[in-house]
Design a protein around this nucleic acid. Structure first.
Length: 268
DNA sequence: AATTTCCACAACCGCCAGTGG
DNA sequence: CCCACTGGCGGTTGTGGAAAT
């Protein structure tokens, strides 16, 4: 016997678009009682809605900090950069855009940007193809082999930072790699949200300074984001300085993180 | 003017992690 | 440890309006 669903489909609950009246009821209720306890909220507020639906309505539409209106070009550029960096991690991306919700950004990406990105990609492919000389085919370029530990993102949460990949034996610290293109992969370690610390760093930092991009493969025009050592040191120290009881610092080591999740894999 | 297609976005759904009893 | 509950996330769907035919 599993958990009961958020709202039974048999119940006489209203679905679909919210009316102005329902909005008002929800706003008034939250103004007085605050939000939380979403499951019981509709009943207490007198709404024939599922709690989850109320929560979504509040978070995505009615909340006081929600910014309506068109996405500016600055915001768009930031979304593109962050998506390149983080993949489909809309809540993280939204955290960098005050007043914008993850849903809004997700919609904007799906309707505008993803198509544009695809078009750009196609255009690049065409350009590359048309510029090649069939009589003198170039040898396939050798993929740039980079022997680095890779952390692929996963859209799940970490709660505890654990030590730690010690590369003290290496003469130069190796950069960590975040492969945003693998964001949907199921079984890789997550680079974010160690008790919120890294999230905060991501959210509160200027991403344009965080990283640089390289093409690891000549077969893909999808750049891979590499964080510079400086940034990683900054991240790891500013975060872990506050958590010294968790961490043993090692001067020449790059701090690596593993998730608490049992299915986390070793970095490659 | 009527119909069809496309687009934007609000809303829904299923899953997962965290939490507390 | 187990289980139920809650909140949160990302993917997907539904729908109304605009544009095209």
């Amino acid at each position: 016997m599993g958990r009961s669903p958020c709202c039974s489909k048999d119940e006489d609950l209203k679905r679909g678009a919210w009316t102005a009246e329902e909005d008002k009821i929800l706003i008034d209720y939250i103004r007085v009682h605050g939000h939380g306890r979403w499951r019981n909220l509709p009943q207490k507020a007198g709404l024939k809605r599922c709690g989850k639906s109320c929560r979504l309505r509040w978070l995505n539409y009615l909340g006081p900090d929600i910014k309506r209106g068109n996405i500016s070009s600055d915001e768009e550029e930031l979304i593109i950069r962050l998506h390149n960096l983080l993949g489909n991690r809309w809540s993280l991306i939204a955290g960098r855009l005050p007043g914008r919700t993850d849903n809004e950004i997700k919609n904007y990406w799906n309707t505008n940007l993803s198509k544009r990105m695809k078009d750009n990609k196609d255009h690049n492919k065409e350009t590359t193809t048309s510029s090649s000389n069939p009589k003198h085919p170039q040898t396939e370029p050798t993929p740039f082999k980079i022997d680095l530990p890779v952390i692929r993102t996963k859209a799940t949460k970490c709660s505890k930072p654990l030590l730690i990949n010690n590369n003290a034996q290496q003469s130069t610290p190796i950069p960590l790699l975040l492969d945003a293109s693998a964001a949907a992969a199921d079984d890789y370690c997550n680079l974010t949200d160690a008790d919120g610390g890294l999230n905060d760093l991501l959210i509160n930092s200027d991403v344009s300074d965080l990283c640089y991009e390289v093409l690891l493969s000549p077969y893909s025009d999808q750049p891979t984001t590499i964080f510079s050592d400086d940034i990683l040191n900054q991240w790891t120290h500013s975060y872990f300085d506050d958590a010294d009881d968790h961490i043993n610092h090692d001067d020449d080591s790059i701090v690596d993180r593993h998730c608490h999740q049992s299915n986390d894999k070793e970095i490659e």
